[in-house]
């Protein structure tokens, strides 16, 4: 969502800049009674003067705007997953969440027979709760847990809660 917001803001900024300059130039040309190359096409004028408020097209566009607004509003107001994981409150130390998850997934991937690992880390109070999804032999669960613990130790992570491991036999999607 953060990337989508940035890209959408860039597009909005470019559209505002280009549209604003066009509108200002064309309106000034009209004021000065000079020819306006972009306003010579009268299609938009004919459409706006002949289409009524009752037109189904107008209703569809208005309904679409309400729907889009509600979707954007819901996306902005829902709780976002924090980008960082707090390690220690005293020295203000944080680790980038995606880096931690990637490192843990790499660590799980070193366990023989385990592939396509995905790890999500949630924080409950001061505890980290890793959730591992991977394909491999379910009997390798203990080794996966050990690999995650080792990597968390290397990262100097705080107290870890229960590690949720889900190993699916080959052929299942993670």
């Amino acid at each position: 969502m953060r990337t989508a917001n940035r890209v959408a803001s860039l597009v909005l900024a470019a559209a505002l800049l280009a549209g604003g300059v066009l509108l200002a130039v064309q309106a000034l040309l009209v004021t000065l009674d000079r020819p306006t190359p972009l306003l010579t096409r009268t299609d938009w004028y004919d459409t706006l003067t002949s289409t009524g408020w009752r037109d189904p097209g107008v209703r569809a566009v208005a309904g679409g705007a309400v729907l889009l607004g509600l979707v954007v509003l819901a996306a902005q107001l829902r709780r976002w997953t924090p980008v960082r994981l707090r390690v220690d409150e005293r020295d203000g130390w944080h680790l980038h969440r995606r880096c931690v998850e990637r490192r843990l997934a790499d660590a799980v991937g070193t366990v023989p027979g385990v592939r396509r690992a995905r790890v999500r880390v949630r924080r409950r109070g001061a505890e980290w709760r890793p959730r591992v999804r991977a394909t491999g032999d379910p009997a390798a669960r203990a080794e996966v847990e050990f690999a995650v613990h080792q990597e968390l130790h290397r990262l100097a992570a705080p107290r870890t809660g229960r590690i949720e491991v889900r190993l699916l036999p080959r052929g299942w999607s993670v």
């Binding site: 960082r84 020295d91 203000g92 130390w93 944080h94 680790l95 980038h96 880096c99 931690v100 990637r102 490192r103 790499d106 990262l155």
Partner: peptide
């Protein structure tokens, strides 16, 4: 406030 990013 310190944020560390670790290379994969």
């Amino acid at each position: 406030d310190v944020t560390a990013r670790i290379e994969p």
